[in-house]
Design a binder for these strands. Structure first.
Length: 183
DNA sequence: ACCCCGATCGTA
DNA sequence: ACGATCGGGGTT
């Protein structure tokens, strides 16, 4: 299963967000099939952390595609993002959910839960997921159905359908290993 | 120095 | 419906 390279992330954020669904995220000796993502796109996106320009926190979003952006939310949870598009353009995909095929009982339906499960914290900020052995993506061949909805937990930019999520019905079927329907 | 609030989650 | 918990960013 080939590792996803930089050119995958150096594309329009909506494309990357959608294509990451069904890909495998590997970190800390665990792997997860991604089932939910969101796109945050540039200074013109009011929900994007870079909406008000460059700051210490969002600095990494202005970096090269493939960099990891981790931030602390509500004082207790971390959220994992991958920087997209060309260097200098602040955009990223938030990884919001997944399933561990080797540990189906886990409910990784939320960015905070996902990071907690994979032990991802602020130390991963600025890591390059296209060259790091610590955190990377594999180009798995799962063909999962994807719905588009408004993004969760924001108060602006709700007009955009920039959340990509595998519907619940399909999610329960993924649990059945060897389900050819999605491979 | 102070104040506000958030790309969340678990419990009630 | 609400509280936990804290760092970033804007304001005084």
């Amino acid at each position: 299963m080939p590792k996803i390279t930089q050119s995958f992330f150096a594309r329009p954020t909506l494309i990357v967000a959608k294509l990451l669904i069904g890909k495998e995220l590997v970190c800390n000796n665990k792997s997860v099939i991604i089932t939910e993502t969101e796109a945050y796109v540039g200074e013109g996106d009011p929900a994007c952390h870079a909406a008000k320009g460059r700051t210490k926190r969002n600095d990494v979003m202005f970096g090269e595609a493939g960099l990891v952006y981790v931030y602390l939310i509500y004082g207790m949870y971390y959220c994992l993002n991958i920087v997209t598009e060309e260097g200098g353009y602040p955009a990223a995909v938030l990884i919001r959910g997944g399933v561990d095929l080797g540990n189906i009982s886990q409910k990784l339906d939320g960015p905070g839960k996902l990071c907690r499960y994979l032990n991802i914290d602020k130390n991963y900020n600025y890591l390059d997921c296209t060259s790091s052995p610590e955190l990377f993506f594999n180009d798995s061949n799962y063909k999962l159905p994807v719905n588009q909805t408004p993004r969760i937990g924001i108060s602006q930019g709700l007009d955009k359908l920039w959340r990509y999520v595998v519907p619940k019905e399909a999610l329960s079927e993924i649990a059945i290993l060897g389900n050819k329907k999605y491979v």
